[in-house]
Structure formats: C-alpha cells, structure tokens
Design a protein around this nucleic acid. Structure first.
Lengths: 204, 204
DNA sequence: GCCTGTGAATTAGTTCACAGCA
DNA sequence: TGCTGTGAACTAATTCACAGGC
C-alpha cells in the first residue's frame, strides 16, 4: 500500500471540514466537481485523493456525503487531538478563544505561562499552570502536541521543555527555528513570512 | 530565466530572517551548512536556492552575511507590506499586537470591525474603521493585502468587500474557503487543520 | 583540504485521457 | 453536456555527485 503524503492528509482534512458543512445543509450527495469548487482544488485532484481511502463513489451520482466523511475520518482523525499551549500572552490567549476547533476534534487541555498573575486562572475553560509543571500536566491531560506562543528569546527553552514533557509535535508561532530531536515533528508558522510570501506571489 | 517558485520565495524569507539574527550577533560569514542547521533544511537546498539569486558565495569561506542578505532582499521585499485587518475580535486583536513583524517589513495600516464600540478606537497604534469605509481607507493607506479574522459566517462577505476595495492578496484565518477572482491570491490558514495534519504526521 | 555551484538523477505531486458503470 | 477511478504522461521539487576555486 502506497503511503499517504502530508499534503494528501491536509486536503483530506479540508474535505472533511467541507463535508461537515454540506451535512449541516442536509446535502446528502456531492460530486467531485462540487467538492472541488468548495475547496478551490480541481475535480481530478479530489477524486485522486479520495481513491487513496477507498472506492466509495457511485458513477453518475457522486459520493454519499455522510459515507465519504466517515471514510476519510478513518484515516485522519480517530481521536481527539489534545493540545497544550505554552505562552498565554496576546497570541496565546487568542488561540485559547479560537472558535474554529470544530466538532471537538481539537481540544486545548492546558496552558503554561511564567506570569504569576496568570497562573491558576482559567481562560475559556483552560487552566494556566507554571511551566515547571509541564511534564506532570502533559502526562495527566494526555496532551499530544504543544503550541509555542512565547517571545522568540525563550522559544528554544520552551521547545526543550515540551520535548522533556513528552510532546511529539510542536506548532511554533515564534519567528525562530527551534531544534528538537528527529522524533518530534515541528510545524513553523511565522506570520510575517506567510504574509510576505503571499505578497511576493502577487508580483509587487 | 527560470521563474522562482513560491516555495523558494518562502525559504528566501526564512534565510533573510536568519541572516538578520546572525548580523545582530556580528557574525560576518556563514556557510550553507550553518544556514541549513539554523533553518532545518539541507545544505544543498540552501545553496540551490541561493544560486537562483546570484553567485555570491566564496568557496572555502562561505557567504558574507550582509551581502547575502542584501542579495536575497532584492528579490523578496523591496517594499514594506501594508496590511489591512478585517475583524478586531480575539484573533484580530492578537494579530494587531503580534511582535513578529520584524524590521517594519510588515506594517498593519488599518483595521475594520462592525462593532460600534470598537470603531474609532486605536489598538497598538492601528485605527479601527467601519467596514463600509474599506474602499476609501485601503486606497488611502496603500494596503496591499488583507487578513480575514471574522466569524466564518461572514467571511465570504468580507472577502467580497476586500476584493471591491482593491486588495490583491488575502490571508484567510476563518475555517471556510472563500471564492475570489483569479487575480486575487488567497492563503488559507485553518488552525484546526494545521494542528490535525501535524498529528496525523506523527502517526497516531 | 574546505565550501560553493550546478547538471543529472531521483522522487513527489499533478494533470491528462479515457474505461466503465448504481 | 454524467460521474468515478486510474494508468500514463507530465511537471515540480529535492537530492546526488562532482567540478572548480581558494
């Protein structure tokens, strides 16, 4: 069996999100063409992706929305993702309040901050702990991945703490590269770079 | 001349960011190996990328940090990027306060919100306007791109307004695909999908 | 011996073209 | 003027292998 690429997985999640919206509108059937329009991809791309996961479409009719969603979910998200947040400043507290973690698939389980005034508080239902408790709290809450939302000066220190706490994935919002053992996956999101690269794509 | 891919541009911005840090540490020389370590890429990748922009390295010595930075900047960011923010809620106001827009290369020039209490206020030096003033304010402030940070129910409406206002790039943080004319570039950042795709990459 | 620069080879990803059926 | 599924062709991106300069 051919292995599924990261890109395919990301698109599968996008299809899942779209299928959920279609289900809410009581649309029982959907074609690759329609899914393509709704996601900004091509219909062939959609069919190629879906065919990785199983032969589930009906010629002349399309896909049954609910069935397709279930098929995709078998591959992309059996479990709820437990996320721990490091840094409850501006960006961090915005993430705590982010409404887009649909269907409880992504759950923020704990936050960490060095600010004494914040420790012990609860934002949007999430308790803030001091960093030294990370190993214990990560274990207790079954956190899978962590978010770096601290100033770049301390992001490497925090990354080390995250690794020590047993997290296996890191989303790094600080504008610095962190170095971690190869068993830990890092995704960097530098907003300035995201914006500037878009702009260069525009042309001027 | 071969055209530069979006991926190469994004990496060039990453090199630029890294070179700035090296310059601050007074490191006048840097090798492709070192740049690779600092960015998490391979040394060949670094050299391949740099060779797009010019023959600027010295065998046996490496690259002169300042010279390399200037060479890259000629291609990626002559001008400051002017950004308009749509939606000054949790995520929006966190972006307004985001400290990572280094070296003034990214400048938030205006924000828009429907909330009467917010209109007229200033967050972190950025004035909040009512949406209907977008066409005028975008023109006046020379905004290049816009950020969607509104609830998903209104993101298409806001995208239409952005297009009408003359913005040519959109970064969409809402968990919905927006449809715009092909001349407008859209970059979608759905945090839930970013997190979940990382998790699927981990394996369980 | 270092370190850059680059054609060639390889691998990944997308699009084409069309068979076949709820 | 349907719609899916898929081998083949194509294109993009990365890695290899090594030439060449200090």
């Amino acid at each position: 069996m051919k292995k599924i690429s990261q890109k395919t997985i990301t698109r599968a999640l996008l299809y899942t999100r779209t299928l959920e919206q279609l289900l809410q509108n009581r649309e029982e059937l959907v074609s690759s063409r329609k899914l393509a329009d709704l996601t900004g991809l091509t219909d062939v791309q959609v069919r190629k992706d879906i065919s990785f996961f199983g032969r589930v479409g009906k010629p002349r009719i399309g896909y049954r929305t609910a069935e397709l969603k279930e098929t995709l979910e078998e591959f992309v998200s059996q479990n709820v993702l437990h996320v721990a947040l490091f840094g409850a400043g501006n960006l961090g507290s915005a993430i705590l309040r982010y409404p887009g973690f649909y269907q409880e698939k992504v759950k923020l389980v704990a936050a960490f901050d060095t600010d004494k005034k914040k420790i012990g508080q609860t934002i949007h239902g999430v308790r803030i702990y001091p960093p030294e408790q990370a190993p214990r709290v990560v274990r207790k809450t079954h956190a899978d991945i962590g978010i770096i939302a601290v100033p770049k000066e301390v992001s490497q220190t925090v990354a080390d703490l995250m690794v020590r706490s047993g997290l296996r994935g890191i989303v790094n919002f600080s504008p610095t590269t962190v170095s971690v053992p190869p068993s830990v996956v890092v995704k960097n999101i530098d907003l300035a770079i995201e914006f500037l690269s878009l702009f260069c794509g525009i042309g001027r």
